[in-house]
Simulated scan of single mutants.
Amino acid sequence: MNNIRALWAELFGTFWLVFGGCGSAVFAAAFPELGIGFAGVSLAFGLTVLTMAYAVGHVSGGHFNPAVTVGLWAGGRFPAKDILPYVAAQVVGGVLAAFVLLYLLQGQAGWVPKGNWLAANGYGDFSPGHFSMAAGFVAEVLLTCFFLLIIMGSTHKLAPMGAAPIAIGLALTLIHLISIPITNTSVNPARSTGPALIMGGWAIKQLLLFWIAPLIGGALGGWIYRTLICED
């Protein structure tokens, strides 16, 4: 992977995912009269991936997620030597998006940080539904695993042409509908890292789970698809 444009594509794609997904949670969902709720936030995350997959997927493959990059490597679709630069670009994109969200939040008259003000991922007392760390870990592994199965299958050469971004975006929407109450939904370490670094405190302390679980789930999903379902 010698094309720097691919890294820019991953940075901007991940920026859009965090800005659009977390932004819908911290802005629109924060006002009850708008009524988007969990369903609206879930759809927003799905739409960010769908739109950027069409926009820059042909440049970088449209990962926007370290767990996807690792999962595609485990599935035999991505070279190991390119994992680190992709992950670095994704994390930078996620952190920049979180900084922009912070700037916008500070533009509201009388704003003070309270609660989970940047839609960070958490478990226990910081889970929206107060789910345990064990429940959060299992949910993140399982959902990321199935996310990779869907990505591997929908991007296979025998799959319907041009439909992969739709399947992947809808899959991410479904994943959020399931797991926002459990962990606020990560399945993406870059998405988790941006808000956690800005918020600090408990979000930083719990961040490790949202790296370990999605990476395990992603690698497992890629390996299962390649080994048990469909050999490329």
Rank of each mutant, 00 (worst) to 15 (best):
F15S: 04
W117A: 11
A196D: 04
L197M: 13
I4N: 03
G222I: 10
A98E: 10
A29P: 05
G57R: 01
N116H: 09
H130P: 00
I36K: 04
G221W: 13
L208I: 15
T144Y: 12
G129Y: 02
V59G: 01
W117S: 07
M52V: 13
L208E: 01
L197A: 06
V100D: 04
T193G: 02
T48Y: 00
G107W: 12
G218S: 07
G124H: 05
E140L: 06
E231Q: 14
I166G: 10
F99R: 02
P214D: 07
F126L: 09
N2W: 11
I178N: 04
M133G: 01
F19P: 05
G124A: 09
A171H: 06
A120V: 14
G201I: 00
I212Y: 06
I4L: 14
S127G: 02
T69S: 09
L84A: 15
I83T: 02
N184M: 07
I178C: 10
W8R: 00
P165D: 09
F146Q: 00
A44R: 05
Y225T: 02
G23R: 06
A167T: 12
S60P: 08
C145K: 00
V100Y: 05
Y103V: 14
I204A: 07
F78R: 08
G46L: 03
L72Y: 06
V91T: 02
G57V: 05
K81V: 14
F27A: 01
H176C: 13
G76E: 09
G222W: 11
K114S: 14
V18S: 00
G93Y: 09
F27L: 10
A9G: 11
P32S: 13
G115Y: 13
Q206Y: 10
G107D: 08
T48V: 04
C145P: 00
I178F: 14
C145N: 05
K157T: 14
I4T: 05
L101T: 07
F78G: 02
P113W: 07
V92C: 11
N188M: 05
T51V: 14
G40V: 09
F27K: 03
G76M: 06
W202E: 15
P181Y: 08
L105E: 13
A167Y: 15
T51N: 00
A28P: 03
W202I: 12
